[in-house]
């Protein structure tokens, strides 16, 4: 399998590691916000465990650890292994200051 890193170009998949679904967002949680613990726990439970089992295109995290050390978000077809797009995660590099929660 070959993955086109947006920085390095097309590379062998051995340079990458797979994390999984890129859709879940880590819940914002402030220790002193007074939110109900159950609601917070439910949100984290969803974030950590609940995933759709997609047959088709899926956004997923790949880490180019054997290359430029960028975390990437790839659209990959789980049935055919076709990659439709590969983009950098929001905090890759330093060029653009990014706001929290994006």
């Amino acid at each position: 399998m070959r993955i086109a890193c947006p920085f390095c170009g097309e590379r062998e998949n051995g340079e990458f590691t797979y994390l999984g679904d890129a859709s879940p967002k880590r819940p914002n949680f402030a220790a002193d916000s007074g939110e109900s613990p159950e609601r917070v726990e439910d949100a984290f439970y969803d974030y950590v465990y609940l995933r759709d089992n997609v047959a088709g295109f899926m956004r997923e995290y790949w880490y180019h650890g054997g290359g430029c050390r960028s975390w990437l978000i790839a659209e990959r077809n789980t049935v055919t292994h076709e990659f439709r797009s590969v983009i950098a995660a929001p905090g890759v590099g330093a060029a653009n200051p990014v706001q929290a929660g994006e």
């Binding site: 051995g14 340079e15 650890g65 054997g66 290359g67």
Partner: peptide
């Protein structure tokens, strides 16, 4: 230039 892996190391 290229960052790559050889024998699984960068």
């Amino acid at each position: 230039a290229a960052n790559t892996s050889v024998d699984h190391t960068a």
